[in-house]
Structures are given as C-alpha cells and as structure tokens.
Design a protein around this nucleic acid. Structure first.
Lengths: 157, 157
DNA sequence: GAATCACTACTCGGATAGGGTGTGTCCGAGTATACATGG
DNA sequence: CCATGTATACTCGGACACACCCTATCCGAGTAGTGATTC
C-alpha cells in the first residue's frame, strides 16, 4: 500500500487541529513531519479531487477540510489515494490453456476470486466503519498536548 | 497483490483433483493454464517451504499436497506466497520533524496504524475462515466436469 | 538368472536479467495581495 | 484621501525522471530409473 495513505490521514487530522479559519499550504503540512513537500502536495491533490479537501490557489491559499472529520471515513481516504481497484485481481487463468472451462461464456467469476472478494469486502467494511473524528479523539486522548503544540508552531514563524 | 497467489490457489485445487497417488511436476501444472512454468515453480517452492506442499526431485518427482485441503486456509496460501508483512506499514512519521511527539519513548503505535491494523485483521480473519476444501466443493458444484477433464488430460500424453 | 554399477534423463532449487508501478522532483497557470500612481 | 491599475509573490496542478519490487528466465544440484556388465 502507498506511503501516501499514512500522510493523507495525518494531514487531515492536523488540518482539523489547526482549525478551519485559514487554508494551510502543503509545504507547511509537510514541514511538520519532514515530508517531501511536492509529493505530499500530490496526495493532497488526490484528496481534493475526491472532495475530501478544498484547495485554494495563490497567497493565503492552501488546503482545508471540505467537510467535518466525522463525515470522512478511512475508506474515503484510502480510495482517494489508492484508487478503487482491489488488491487482488483475478486474471481468469482458468479460461486459458487446455484447462479452459468450456461453457464459461461469461458466467460468474471463479470461486477463488469470489473468496478473495469476500475477504476484501471485510477489509473495506472495517475501513468504512471508522471515521477520522474517532481517530482524532483517540489521538487527543493519547497525547493531549499535540493539538496545542501544532497550533502554536503553525501560527509562529 | 502478487499474481502468484491466484496461481497457487488454482494449483492446490488441481493437485487435489489429480489425486495424491503421484507427484505432479510444476511444468505440467503450468501447461494446464498456459502459465510460465519456471515462475509457477517459484510459487510452488514457496508453498513447499511453508509446509503446504511436499516436493520430490528427480524423475517421477514433483509436488503433492502435504495435508488435506480442509486443513489449508486461504490465509496459509497468501502468507506463503506474499509473506507475513501487512499491506499497510506505519512509517511513524509522527516521530519526525517539529511535530515529533516528545514523550514517545516507545509507547503504543499511533492510532492510524492501529486503525489500519484493525481493518487488516478483519481481512486476515476472513481469509483464515475459508479453507480450500470449501473452495473445491464450490468449484465442483459450478463445473462438475472439471475434475474428470483434468484427470483425463493429465494421464494422457 | 540375479545383483551391482555407471549412466542418463528428469525434477526441484536458487541465482540471474527486464518491466511496471509507486516515489520523488520540477516548472508553469492562476490568483489574492501590496504598492505605486493618478484623480 | 480614495480609487484604480499593475507588478509581485505565493499557491496549486499537472508533466517529467528515478528506484524498487514483481515478473520472467536460466542453469546447477540431486535423484530415480534404466541398461549394461559381471559373477
């Protein structure tokens, strides 16, 4: 899985901590964790295309959350960054070679693809059940000083 | 996810259909679905290392199932081919840069890693709950003639 | 005729090249701000 | 003093190289069978 998913999730929570008053440039979000700015920008673009973030150009521009954290699921972020394609893709090898299923005009998918699909569905469901607001609360419970530290650093030089 | 997982699963079921009497060379299993023989051999090696298959060298050698299909879960095959590493790996970016959590001597993982871990756990659980015997029965129900066709072709030229 | 031995052919096993998808970087389009200028 | 036009600096957005892992392949180690040879 892409590195960018982790960056995107952290960035969303950081955006929530900074507050909705002003947009935050990608470079500033990147500096907070010493990430390559241009590449983080690429991930944030993906979030903006997915409607999770709103982007503004020019001075005082940047990214801000397009909707509350409670309305953003882990699944939304993963899909925005990674795309909708599942990890397992059936190459339909059963329809090639001497073992080709004769009747398979365009029947149902092979049982292996179905079985892997069930597992991926469980994964997607688990991702969809968790939203970023819950993650934010868990993070604040763990390190209560984190939001204030971020705001101080951000409004500073 | 690797292509090899699909090949490995099909090969295990095909081995069960051919029967435990004799070992099957990788080249013959590959020919059934027109797969690159040497590369399929590589995947079967991984299954052998994991104890799912037993390998024999020399003439009349090849691979055979090391235990009944009912005792082989989808998870076993995926781990054998892909390794135990999960899809999402936390790079611990929260401990780098100005935003480094000060107290984090070696505390619990960040909430994001935990959340992704929960989703992966659901995926693993779904894989572990399904065994290859179930898949074989489903496949036979769908194409009852498949096992006989395979045996005929295999014992032929 | 039976046992022994060397030879052959066949299989796995790991070491060895090539391509595709992330990973990282760069420069251009667009815009809000700030300032200078004129009324 | 106020309005207006212009220049500027800053941001996103997409286009451009690089690297690593999956894919694919090859050759060597080892073994079972086979045939010749000898007692």
């Amino acid at each position: 899985m892409s590195e960018g998913v982790e960056w995107a999730l952290h960035s969303c929570i950081n955006l929530a901590w900074i507050g909705p008053e002003r947009a935050v440039p990608a470079a500033r979000l990147a500096a907070w964790h010493e990430l390559p700015a241009a590449y983080l920008n690429k991930q944030l673009q993906a979030l903006a295309r997915a409607g999770i973030l709103a982007s503004t150009s020019g001075p005082k521009g940047g990214f801000r959350l397009a909707r509350p954290l409670a309305e953003i699921s882990l699944m939304d972020v993963v899909v925005a960054v990674e795309g909708t394609a599942g990890a397992f893709r059936c190459a339909e090898i059963r329809s090639r070679g001497p073992g080709a299923v004769p009747t398979a005009g365009d029947g149902p998918a092979c049982v292996i693809a179905q079985a892997m699909g069930r597992a991926e569905l469980a994964w997607r469901r688990a991702l969809a059940e968790q939203n970023l607001e819950e993650l934010r609360q868990q993070a604040e419970r763990r390190t209560p000083q984190a939001p204030e530290r971020l705001r101080t650093w951000f409004h500073g030089p």
